[in-house]
Design a protein around this nucleic acid. Structure first.
Lengths: 196, 196
DNA sequence: TGTACATCAGTGAACGCGCGTTCACTGATGTAC
DNA sequence: TGTACATCAGTGAACGCGCGTTCACTGATGTAC
């Protein structure tokens, strides 16, 4: 085999990435060390050359998963040049996102786990929330209360994906995503006039 | 001791209720059978007189937790007689709710678990979502698109509580809850006028 | 450029603990007479 | 109303498996000479 310093760093990151996906898809408790190492092409014994304990790995992998989200979303926002805010919302509430929790936004998949977790995980979670809020508020140029609007928008995005995944009827799940997409796209508060 | 038929039913429900709280607070994987039975005042051995397996208990406890939510929310909505919709939103986004996941809405705490769960859990989850939507849409009397509005509102409620719990800075958590409360209370779409 | 040696990523067997599940047993319940 | 007996909720010891962690070992890396 061989094992240079560069290879070690690569192995470490590979394990981190694999774990960050597994915990999003299956929760932070399920995947075992042997399983994770095997998927990285190694045996379980070498694990402790990279991480102090399972807990250490999970904590780092959670931070890894959380950090991954932003760049992804920035990219999807840029797809719709006329209305990047709508672009982001559509991408976030897309069925592909709902159906791919392993590579999806960790605010949804790791929310409950972070709530129970230690300070490290919560800090990573918060950082990710703040980044999203800045991103959304930044796209929402013309509004003065952009930050408040962004909080409602982000909450709705996260909640909608969470529920869309947990519901049994696929059509109902679709309806949820589509409805929230439509409502949020025209700004959380623009549309009115219908009532009153 | 003694054990009449009535006592058996009571025991069963006690275990279910305890478990429904534990899994909301600590996740569906953590609490063990011995621990749960002890908290119900029993030893672990009798467990299988009530449930087929740990999985069976968790599934039923999840459904139990989900079902509990609605009645609670209906009550809090009625607190504010002038504007029951605002009453519900304030109760849902209250700090007491954020700080008491064990007895709080299971749509938040069990969302990720339900997404990974079997059909039974997903059906229970969906039922609860539908009940909430009906409740919110019902309170939102004067709007024709009440159902769509309810979907956005519920998504934002669930997402906001999930994030408020997972974030590290308590002040930021408070801000999130307060901001979303203020924004949602005046109807998701009524307020406008600020922009454009 | 070549040789000897220390380092250390990765291997795989072994350990030990926690926990879900099983089982023989107990004693109160409640039914049959 | 009282007595004998079957039922079964609850007990606690024991089992066994999975899994996190440890450890002696291997062999390639990369440094010293």
């Amino acid at each position: 085999m061989g094992h240079s310093q560069a290879e070690k760093a690569a192995t470490r990151e590979r394990v981190l990435r694999i774990t960050s996906r597994k915990i999003r898809a299956e929760g932070v408790t399920r995947p075992g060390i042997a399983e994770l190492m095997n998927e990285a092409g190694l045996t379980h014994g070498g694990f402790y050359k990279h991480f102090r304990s399972r807990d250490d790995l999970i904590t780092q992998a959670a931070a890894f998963a959380l950090a991954e989200g932003t760049s992804k979303m920035e990219r999807s926002a840029r797809k719709n040049e006329e209305d990047p805010r709508a672009g982001l919302i559509e991408a976030y509430l897309a069925k592909q996102h709902r159906d791919a929790p392993a590579t999806g936004c960790a605010l949804v998949t790791l929310g409950a786990a972070a709530a129970r977790g230690g300070q490290d995980v919560k800090e990573a979670y918060e950082k990710q929330v703040r980044t999203y809020l800045d991103l959304i508020a930044g796209l929402d140029d013309d509004r003065e209360d952009a930050r408040a609007d962004a909080m409602v928008t982000l909450s709705a995005l996260v909640g909608a994906v969470l529920m869309a995944r947990a519901v049994d009827d696929p059509e109902f799940s679709d309806e949820l995503l589509e409805t929230v997409t439509a409502r949020l796209s025209r700004h959380t508060s623009h549309d009115t006039d219908a009532a009153t």
